[in-house]
Simulated scan of single mutants.
Amino acid sequence: MTAPLDVPGGATDAQPEAVLAGGGVAIQGRSLTQIAWTRLKRDRWALAGGVLIVVLVLVAIFAPLVVKLLGHPPNEFHADQIDPNLSMPIGRWGGISGDHLLGVEPVNGRDLFSRVVYGARISLLIAFLATLLSVVIGTVLGVVAGYYGRWVDTLISRTMDLFLAFPILVFALALAGVVPDRAFGLNGDALRIALLIFIIGFFNWPYIGRIVRGQTLSLREREFVDAARSLGARTPYILFRELLPNLAAPILVYATLLIPTNILFEAALSYLGVGVRPPTATWGGMLSAATTYYSVDPTFMMVPGVAIFVTVLAFNIFGDGLRDALDPRAR
């Protein structure tokens, strides 16, 4: 029986990781973020939705530059583009031309492309900030209710039920009529935007609060929480340093799915006339104005309608892909 050759660099000198890898390089571990990103890259639809979201956000942020290059000021009238006898855009498809990429509005001739771009700023701003408000309130109360249990859980859970049963749309209609033109140091569009963010965000927190509470009920019985308690960790440390990082995935996924809901709700409020007031461009306000002319100028209604549809679809597709990437067992 011959002994194995002790050759430098041979099999006897190789580390177990190198042997398993089939070479001289050790296997490197991957974090949960890297694993989720790898899964997300395989979903082309989710990536397409994410790219579209980034484009929409950039267009909204740089709306003045985009309009300066490709359009006209959103409140500028173009009487030369309107037929004086019919008060309708000259030409076919709502007056679409090289100078007006999406046509013009009936009667006043305002550029539709510019108004859709500026409307994206209002819709996305309200949707993002309202979602942030809902996530913060829902996460804090959901974690507290799930961790403490007993009467604290009962109190917060019944409060969630109360908010879920509250007629938000009716309240928004009533509040918009009661709030004066100047309040809380704000006026004009700033007051209306702040009011919409409060209504949408404050009354939607129970949805994410219930999800966080359910996840916390499961996590509080895990070994890492018991280990933190045995080491003398206080409750705030356990809540925000142990439980909250493990809740990041469901919170992030639900936030991406809540944003399109808030976009639709803001559009509905603007459509009903309780959102941002004209002449400030909003997608819902444009749809409301287009109802008078949809039979003779369908382009006027299609442009903001398609903008809402594409934005909501992009967020929903990206949210579904993100959920699958962070939790493959949900498939």
Rank of each mutant, 00 (worst) to 15 (best):
A194M: 11
G98Q: 02
A174W: 10
L173H: 02
A330M: 11
R229L: 13
L129E: 06
M301I: 11
L164H: 04
S230C: 11
Y148A: 02
L186Q: 04
F203D: 08
P278W: 04
V274I: 14
V67H: 00
P89G: 03
I35N: 05
I193K: 02
L58D: 00
P84H: 01
E223V: 08
D297V: 15
M301K: 02
A11C: 04
I199V: 15
L56H: 08
L175C: 06
L175V: 12
F240C: 08
G9I: 00
G177K: 06
I156G: 07
P180C: 08
G22S: 05
L101K: 05
L264P: 12
F198P: 09
G142N: 09
L243P: 11
G149R: 00
G22F: 06
S295Y: 14
L243A: 06
R39T: 15
H78C: 12
A11N: 04
V303T: 07
I193L: 05
T159Y: 04
V19F: 09
A165S: 15
A228P: 10
D99G: 15
A3P: 15
I200L: 11
A127D: 04
P84N: 00
Y118I: 07
Q28D: 14
V7T: 05
D13F: 08
A60L: 01
I238V: 13
F62A: 09
L217I: 09
V107F: 07
G285I: 07
Q34A: 15
